[in-house]
Nucleic acid binder design. Structure first.
Lengths: 251, 251
DNA sequence: CATAAATGTGTTATTATGACGCAATGTACT
DNA sequence: AGTACATTGCGTCATAATAACACATTTATG
């Protein structure tokens, strides 16, 4: 796969890549989709290269889709990373030798790569992690337990989370991360996880319902300990409207 | 200059450029620094290419500095643009012929370029617009009177303004755009211009002073019609603190 | 059947916001 | 010189948003 790309590097945008931070929410934990290559001790964000005949946004959708199988999800560009040292030595001579790539073509790969970061919010349950290469492991990792990552991928991940945290003040979040029916405590837990702080139960309910994007269902969650919480769903129409216009701003 | 870059294109990141939206504020109007090339009917944003041995942020500072002569200003990356059609036909055969560039090397330039957008906030009065090429005209244009721009530069400019508008809710703005001493009505006008809406005088004063970044000076503006407004300055220490921690957020 | 842990639904005090009143200041015109 | 006018400075008041907290309800568990 990588060898194919290098051999046909004239079909790809040189020196430019895409990395996706794919967020999911499951079991009240925020998860990130990571790739593990057996020969390496470090994990990485799912990424890819950009065909010269594709918009970068389209290429990002392709990366996301090829890894998760989902379509039509929330995907947003958040930053571009281009320190000169960011991929020093990453594809060293040994890797090129291993892949049987001649030095001249290897230059395409070993130059400094600038990478465009996208973050995605996906429904954990609809995802089928898909290893593009046979020896890869694609897995969900709790965002609090992210192992050492290659290159500057940790920085990219942190920036994605920071962006998401900021955007929580500008837009509603949840439609893409929660199942069709969910409870307020689940939604609150999502907010708390992203913000990394506790929120007051009662104030959260008031504020989130005031946005006007929730529909209270005549149904309670089953098989739970203690009092069964009510189920809600998003009013997609109003949700999209608020997404488009943004939450009420300060000025 | 452009010819030099193409001739030595191995020294530059291929297929990648930087474009800067440089905002200034003067005479109660928000201005944008634009480049006009005499032979072209369209203007453009000041931009440049990325030396392979420079961080992209550094390259952006270089672009800004070479155009305006200022250093240490507010510069922020806001988005990356990479539609495949974005520079179709921009450097056509005629341009290459004009620059006497052989076809093979011209490919470096005529491929799809992805551009990284940065926006800067600068003190209008400290700027010395500097044409890098002898036949360029560098000028401040009122943001409401921006002429037709090349490529997708209008889209880039709009996105920059939109980002600035959003960030007004997250951080204080003004230190980089106003002179040392300024009046509240001037600061309000800046906010109104960016937000493109009228604000109430009295409520604005209350809200802006509550942030705690202003120092009221014992001095009034001179040579003004009507009642002379008081002068203020920013408390740089507190300003930077708020910039770092952000304005109080919703959640 | 009492307990523990969670949910549903409030109240209250404080603060922030939006809409507006009015006096003070300084220019410009008669 | 005196008055009209635009603009600033400093308020008020009603309403909305927020933070902190109280209490009853539901349901698994021992």
């Amino acid at each position: 796969m990588l060898k194919d790309i290098i051999e046909n590097n004239q079909n790809y945008q040189p020196g430019l890549s895409i990395d996706c931070v794919i967020f999911g929410f499951h079991d009240n934990h925020l998860k990130v989709l990571l790739i593990k290559v057996p020969r390496s001790t470090k994990s990485s964000l799912p990424g890819g290269f950009i065909p010269i005949d594709q918009d970068i946004d389209t290429a990002a959708v392709t990366v996301l889709n090829s890894r998760t199988g989902v379509e039509g999800v929330f995907l947003r560009q958040f930053a571009t990373f281009g320190k000169i040292s960011r991929n020093d030595q990453h594809f060293g001579k040994n890797v090129l030798e291993y892949l049987k790539i001649e030095e001249e073509k290897g230059k395409w790969l070993t130059q400094r790569f600038v990478t465009i970061g996208y973050y995605a919010l996906v429904d954990f349950l609809k995802i089928i992690p898909n290893p593009v290469n046979h020896d890869e492991i694609v897995e969900w990792i709790d965002h609090k337990e992210v192992p050492e990552l290659i290159l500057d991928h940790k920085e990219i991940l942190d920036k994605a989370l920071d962006t998401l945290r900021t955007e929580l003040n500008l837009m509603p979040v949840g439609y893409n991360l929660l199942p069709e029916k969910f409870t307020i405590p689940e939604l609150q837990k999502l907010y708390e996880t992203i913000l990394d702080k506790k929120l007051d139960r009662r104030n959260f309910l008031r504020k989130i319902t005031n946005i006007g994007i929730l529909t209270k269902l005549d149904e309670k969650k089953s098989n739970v300990a203690h009092k069964a919480p009510n189920l809600y769903s998003f009013d997609k129409e109003k949700y999209d409207e608020v997404l488009k216009n943004g939450l009420t701003q300060g000025w």
